[in-house]
């Protein structure tokens, strides 16, 4: 199959992408215990697109996402985010970059339990000491339909509601890119659908760039593009239309 050929791994010209990785490897441990979580990944993510990353467990999805988001550093290779070469940044700058240009949604535990929903949403802005764009935040909140829940603390929200608050939180600071690591991993299918719908709309309506790691073929079908990882390598890069397609691709990647 053509997408498993070496040429297919090169995901277009890195220059035009909002986020791009070039020859990224990440090695854990040494000698006998050495694990190559990423083995020379080159991939680009153009702005305004929703990309799903899939692959078997241990294939390096989270590692790739962490490296793209400036949470981890590659053993070799380079990452450019919104025109900024991450390897040139020290820890404090990376922190600022995450704060200003990156939005995160994790599988669980996205919110600080002592803050209510509104405060959690505004947290990245508060940390930056920035005034929130009220109109924008108001529109986001309206979109998620959480208006009546804003003064509730996370413990008073359902898991799905929590994830939606987390997505609004990620979008509130108008980041260049939103990373989501299995955002629906803990949710039932109805809540999952709501969360994925929200991510989808952020791309369609607000032109947001979203990169999502998922195990769920159904979830991946919400994305514009599907990236398949296996053993630290990109083994497929293409459009994702339906869950059925995705399952076929997954089977093929083994």
């Amino acid at each position: 199959m053509s997408f498993s050929t070496p040429e297919a791994r090169v995901a277009g010209p890195a220059g035009s992408a909002l986020v791009s990785a070039t020859g990224v490897t990440r090695v854990y441990g040494e000698g006998e215990a050495e694990v190559r979580a990423l083995d020379g990944v080159t991939v680009g993510f153009p702005a305004g697109r929703f990309t799903a990353i899939m692959g078997p467990s241990g294939s390096g999805k989270s590692t790739l996402m962490h490296i793209l988001a400036g949470l981890d550093r590659p053993t070799s290779g380079s990452v450019v985010l919104d025109g900024i070469e991450l390897s040139a940044l020290d820890d404090a700058r990376l922190t600022d970059l995450r704060r200003d240009k990156v939005g995160f949604v994790f599988q669980s535990f996205n919110l600080l339990p002592v803050l209510d929903a509104r405060e959690n949403i505004l947290l990245p802005l508060s940390i930056a000491g920035r005034k929130p764009d009220q109109a924008w935040v108001g529109r986001l909140i309206e979109t998620v339909g959480l208006g009546d829940r804003l003064s509730h603390r996370p413990s008073e929200l359902s898991a799905g509601q929590q994830q939606r608050v987390a997505i609004v939180r990620a979008l509130a600071a108008q980041p260049s890119v939103v990373f989501a690591d299995e955002p629906t991993g803990n949710l039932d299918s109805k809540s999952s659908a709501e969360v994925l719908e929200l991510l989808r709309r952020s791309v369609d309506e607000f032109g947001q760039t979203v990169i999502m790691v998922t195990h769920d073929a159904q979830a991946a079908s919400y994305a514009d593009r599907l990236l398949l990882l296996a053993d630290g390598l990109v083994v497929h890069d293409g459009e994702a239309h339906s869950a059925g397609d995705v399952l076929d691709l997954l089977k093929a990647a083994g």
Binding site: T95, D96, L97, R98, R99, F106, F109, L112, P124, I127
Partner: peptide
């Protein structure tokens, strides 16, 4: 976990 989350979303060490 909370501290990790805060650091991930851009809280500096100083903060």
């Amino acid at each position: 976990r909370e501290l990790g989350l805060m650091r991930a979303i851009g809280t500096s060490r100083k903060q």
